[in-house]
Computed example of a mutant assay.
Amino acid sequence: MMRSSEAWKMICPNCGHAVSVWESGGIRWGAKSVGKRVAGRCPACGTAGMMPLEKRP
């Protein structure tokens, strides 16, 4: 479950910083959705809003 959640990244639309779903306190297991957005705050620039999710190795 942890490995799967770490592969999913929340991408900041403002600065492009990527943070894993696991690091941000979420769980994403067995997911295959494309184009999903989640509410979050970027740890790099502080922007809050809907962030797209991408699965990255």
Rank of each mutant, 00 (worst) to 15 (best):
M10W: 00
M50W: 14
C42D: 08
A18N: 03
M10G: 05
R37C: 01
M1H: 10
G49K: 11
A39E: 15
C15M: 06
H17A: 12
G25S: 09
K32S: 13
M10C: 07
S33Y: 10
E23L: 06
I11W: 01
V34M: 04
G35H: 04
G26A: 06
P52C: 00
V19N: 05
S5N: 08
V19C: 06
A18T: 12
P43K: 06
V38E: 13
V19W: 05
G26V: 10
S24L: 14
R41F: 00
V19I: 12
R37Q: 15
A44L: 08
C45E: 09
V34Y: 06
V19R: 04
C12L: 06
S20V: 00
V21E: 02
R3S: 10
A44P: 00
V34L: 12
I27Q: 04
M2E: 15
S5I: 09
A7M: 13
A18R: 13
V21P: 02
A31W: 14
S4Q: 14
M50H: 06
C15S: 13
C15Q: 12
W22S: 08
S24N: 10
M50A: 15
G30L: 08
A39I: 00
A39F: 07
G35S: 01
M50E: 13
R28T: 03
R37H: 15
I27N: 05
C42A: 07
M50P: 01
W29P: 00
I27R: 08
A7Q: 15
G49P: 14
A48K: 14
I11Q: 02
M10Q: 08
A48N: 01
W29V: 11
R56V: 13
G46H: 06
R3P: 01
V19A: 12
S4F: 09
W29F: 13
A48C: 07
G40C: 06
I27S: 12
G40V: 02
V19E: 15
W29H: 12
K9V: 09
V38C: 01
M51A: 04
V21Q: 04
E54D: 06
S20F: 02
C12K: 10
A44Y: 08
C45M: 11
K55C: 04
K32Y: 13
A39M: 11
N14T: 14
E23D: 15
E23S: 07
K9Y: 12
G40E: 02
A44M: 13
G46D: 07
S33K: 03
P43N: 06
C45F: 08
C12S: 05
M51R: 10
E6K: 15
N14H: 13
R37Y: 14
I11D: 01
A18I: 02
C12P: 05
G46Q: 08
G30H: 02
A31P: 00
E23M: 03
R28E: 13
R28K: 14
A44Q: 14
G49F: 09
G25W: 12
P13N: 05
R41D: 03
V38I: 14
W29S: 10
A31R: 09
V38S: 05
I27E: 14
C15P: 03
C15R: 11
P52Y: 11
W29R: 02
T47F: 15
V21R: 04
G49H: 07
K55Y: 07
R28G: 03
E54S: 01
G46T: 12
P57L: 07
H17N: 13
G46R: 05
I11G: 00
A44F: 09
L53I: 03
G46C: 01
S20A: 11
S33L: 07
W22G: 03
